[in-house]
Design a protein around this nucleic acid. Structure first.
Lengths: 118, 118
DNA sequence: TTGACATATACCGATATCGGTATATGATCC
DNA sequence: GGATCATATACCGATATCGGTATATGTCAA
């Protein structure tokens, strides 16, 4: 059993840095494929393939505009990732909680000193 | 060129659901490997290998406790993911902004009507 | 209809990764 | 030292994926 397909979910689709670049580029508004090719400095077929993956997990949507295909982002599909990591957000803020505790203790000591110091 | 190694960064490490399960399990506190084996219902070598990946991207840390090895989470390493998706958080709240705009317009129309209506 | 432009797909080779099984390492206890 | 428990590593086979190159599809313009 190999790694899960990139089209399994947003987690796998977004693990590829190029695809994050594409989403970042689309964050400013919809763009045709060639724009992305220039921005990424990658071959056109490669970009098309990355876009296909992003489409399959519904991270982007397409619109036909003459001979061009305008891609736009669908951030909604990033929500599962956001929800998952958000639960761990406190983890890297924990130090502040610890700091709070320390400050609290210091304050109490200060109070003790102030009240009992004689 | 194949897919980037799972140990490249947190994005790739966390794309695997089992590894997210492991992190979820460790969220409640540090645990020995066998605990995780039971919780995941996966083979012990597999769990050890997943833990290795998580260690290499610094998502977990280990502590020796007799014959056991206690693993704990290091959520700090999830911050890059959090930061990246957070930028898109507004995307799925956009509808509320749109709603706000609509409400704003309605309010102005109401004001116009109230002020000019005669 | 022919040519130019824009994009998608087919095929290729290299490779990391998954679970599984067997085995090595390492610590504890008698 | 020998047995046992806890964990790590080595090896295997199957496969999806990456970039690259060539080609198909589709649209417009003359």
């Amino acid at each position: 059993m190999p790694r899960a397909a990139t089209t399994t979910d947003a987690f796998n689709a977004v693990a590829e840095p190029r695809r994050r670049q594409i989403l970042d580029a689309l964050a400013g508004g919809e763009r045709p494929v060639n724009d992305l090719v220039e921005l990424l400095g990658l071959g056109q077929p490669q970009v098309s393939k990355h876009l296909r993956v992003l489409r399959e997990v519904d991270l982007v949507a397409v619109r036909d505009e003459g001979r061009q295909r305008m891609y736009r982002i669908n951030g909604q599909s990033l929500k599962p990732i956001h929800d998952w990591v958000k639960a761990y957000e406190q983890t890297w803020n924990e130090r502040f909680e610890v700091l709070d505790e320390v400050l609290e203790e210091l304050k109490e000591q200060e109070n003790d000193n102030g009240g009992n110091d004689d």
